[in-house]
């Protein structure tokens, strides 16, 4: 069953673009990645899904319910972590956390305490005295304490130190194996590659790829490194060329035979062909203007 489904979802802010004709579908129990650079429309998509802003056209359903008509119902089963963690001034961490629980009419202080402990969050501090990383932790607790069916996380790891990032993903994985669906928006591709099963890539407000992370990494392009030459052989199309000492490395997306023929004529002493990383694929999608 689709937990998130959008059909031609479009949002314009006046004349400026938010998202255009977004068709997205996330199944129950998925660990879904949503990739795109700043300004591509990730947050716009999320805010539209959460009913913070209304779509210009198109429709979207979460848990099979309409995002506008059944908003409150949908939101009670969602844990949302905004990219910017801002809270009311002069309020203590524990008060924010219990406020969030009270608005949800849920008693989850035990779970909140557990999360605070795991994230090493001091509940007695005032939120306006906290650093960005610590405010993010408050956000995490608010998003997860009521054990939501769907977690929507907008650039959750920015500001968190590596140890906390690891702890955070451990918590997410536990939630995921407990049956929760995770929707993770990020521009840090390694964390998507490491954690997500499926991912969508968004560019300039349009969806340009939606596939399993495995398949996305398995595009026809290969990362080729030739040792012994410092130039790209032949006339085939090579992208993101890096010259490093006596070797040249590039992304190649033509026939492999062609590559070997050209290479055999060169004074190379070593050669590696690897799958590109998601980072490279991402760059590839962006440089090529989204086709392929």
């Amino acid at each position: 069953m689709s937990i998130i489904e959008t059909k031609k979802l479009t949002k314009y802010y006046g004349k400026s673009r938010g998202i255009i004709n977004l068709d997205l579908s996330v199944s129950e129990g998925e660990f879904f990645g949503f990739i795109g650079p700043n300004g591509a429309g990730k947050s716009t998509t999320i805010r539209t899904l959460l009913g913070l802003i209304y779509p210009t056209s198109g429709e979207a359903r979460i848990f099979g319910k309409d995002i506008i008509r059944d908003k409150a119902e949908i939101l009670s089963d969602i844990g949302y972590m905004p990219s910017e963690a801002t809270f009311y001034n002069g309020i203590k961490v524990k008060e924010i956390i219990s406020l969030s629980a009270k608005i949800r009419k849920a008693d989850c202080s035990a779970e909140a305490d557990r999360l605070c402990e795991r994230l090493a969050l001091d509940k007695e501090k005032r939120v306006d005295e906290l650093s960005l990383g610590n405010r993010k932790k408050v956000s995490i607790v608010c998003a997860l304490q009521h054990k939501p069916r769907l977690c929507i996380l907008d650039e959750p790891t920015s500001g968190l130190d590596p140890l906390m990032q690891k702890e955070f993903f451990d918590i997410l994985k536990e939630r995921h194996s407990g049956g929760a669906t995770i929707f993770l928006s990020s521009h840090v591709l390694s964390e998507i590659q490491k954690n997500c099963s499926r991912a969508a890539i968004i560019k300039d407000g349009r969806l340009i790829a939606l596939d399993s992370v495995e398949n996305l990494s398995k595009t026809s392009a290969k990362r080729v490194t030739l040792h012994g030459v410092t130039e790209i052989p032949g006339s085939f199309s090579a992208r993101s060329v890096e010259i490093n000492g006596d070797s040249v490395s590039f992304l190649y997306s033509g026939g492999i035979k062609n590559l070997l023929n050209s290479a055999s004529a060169l004074p190379i002493y070593d050669m590696t062909i690897t799958e590109p990383t998601l980072d490279e694929i991402f760059m590839h999608y962006y440089e090529k203007g989204g086709e392929n």
Binding site: R47, L50, G51, L52, K71, A72, E73, I74, L75, S76, I78, Y80, P82, E84, T86, F87, S100, I103, R104, C142
Partner: peptide, 9 residues
């Protein structure tokens, strides 16, 4: 953004 993403109209 904090307040309105809670289930309250």
């Amino acid at each position: 953004e904090f307040l309105l993403t809670h289930p309250v109209s």
